[in-house]
Design a protein around this nucleic acid. Structure first.
Length: 280
DNA sequence: ATCCTATCCTGGCTGC
DNA sequence: TGCAGCCAGGATAGGA
């Protein structure tokens, strides 16, 4: 599933083909992909604009637009579960679940999305879109001490808290499970009962996990995530716990387990991640 | 404040 | 073989 590393990879690989391109036309095949925005508004925002950057905020792809050297809003895309964004030659065959196509001055930008959860829209104001997002785990506004303070300021289980994009922006189910295992923290531990040393460890393991996943262009273990070049990522080969329930822990050998927390499959080792005492 | 559930969706899988 | 039913999951909304 596209989380921070997959979105970062998508932005990086799209950049050379997209930056400098001018948008000529907009073709919407599944209107709900616009998330309530009208097709007219999308067209008004995009047609004639030039793409000047390919970046990421949390799990959103963000493309700066310009008209005559003046900033002119943003193209914002969220891949959600199964979205794929890639540049193709203008006459290439359409992918099987095409939702939006932008005609460019060179080729097309296609948004393909099997499950239709993805979003693709124009935003005049970037802050309005991202107002409720928490800090970037790889950004410089956060360090181990402030992350520890943030954990202590909440009274939630670690797993749902780390998935909460208003608390920390960019983690999803896979990288939360991996980071908790690497930190030796049980997913049901209460955030305000994590000692500072362990909080600092968690912070560093989150960053290390994300950086390692970016270096391998993300994780591809089902038919969904592929980079814009169509290649799978390779971080799935590094998974320590995700999807490994029933198999031995690579650290201690105990059989890994899977439970459901907040309706999310949660994978961990009962020995390496000891259960919290009493209720948290 | 936090938790829980439902919603959106489809393809792939299980079980009969 | 066919088919019904279930599952995965990011974000969000509404209720407890």
């Amino acid at each position: 599933m596209p989380e921070l590393p997959e979105v970062e990879t998508t932005a990086r690989l799209l950049e050379p083909d997209l930056v400098g391109r001018r948008i000529r036309g907009v073709d919407v095949r599944w209107p709900r992909t616009l998330g309530g925005q009208s097709e007219h508004a999308l067209r008004e925002g995009l047609v004639g604009a030039r793409i000047t950057t390919a970046g990421r905020r949390a799990k959103y792809l963000v493309f700066d637009l310009e008209r005559g050297r003046r900033p002119a809003g943003y193209l914002v895309v969220h891949l959600r579960m199964s979205g794929r964004l890639f540049v193709a030659p203008a006459r290439a065959a359409e992918s099987s679940h095409l939702r939006v196509r932008l005609s460019l001055d060179r080729g097309v930008l296609d948004f393909d999305d099997v499950r239709k959860f993805g979003r693709f829209f124009f935003a005049a104001d970037r802050d309005a879109v991202f107002a409720s997002l928490g800090p970037e785990p790889l950004g410089d506004e956060l360090d181990a001490a402030s992350f520890g303070r943030a954990l202590r300021s909440r009274k939630r289980m670690l797993k749902p808290l780390l998935l909460d994009q208003t608390f920390l922006a960019g983690l999803g189910n896979i990288y939360v499970d991996e980071s908790l295992f690497r930190s030796g923290l049980h997913p049901l531990r209460r955030s305000d009962r994590v000692p500072q040393a362990a909080a600092g460890r968690l912070f560093e393991e989150i960053r290390a996990t994300l950086n390692e996943a970016i270096a391998r262009e993300g994780s591809s273990f089902d038919s969904f995530y592929r980079t814009p070049t169509g290649q799978p990522g390779s971080y799935q080969h590094q998974f320590l716990v995700y999807g490994r329930d029933g198999r031995p822990c690579l650290r201690c050998g105990r059989t890994l387990v899977k439970i459901v927390v907040g309706q999310r499959g949660t994978h961990f080792c009962t020995r390496c991640q000891p259960a919290p005492r009493q209720r948290g």
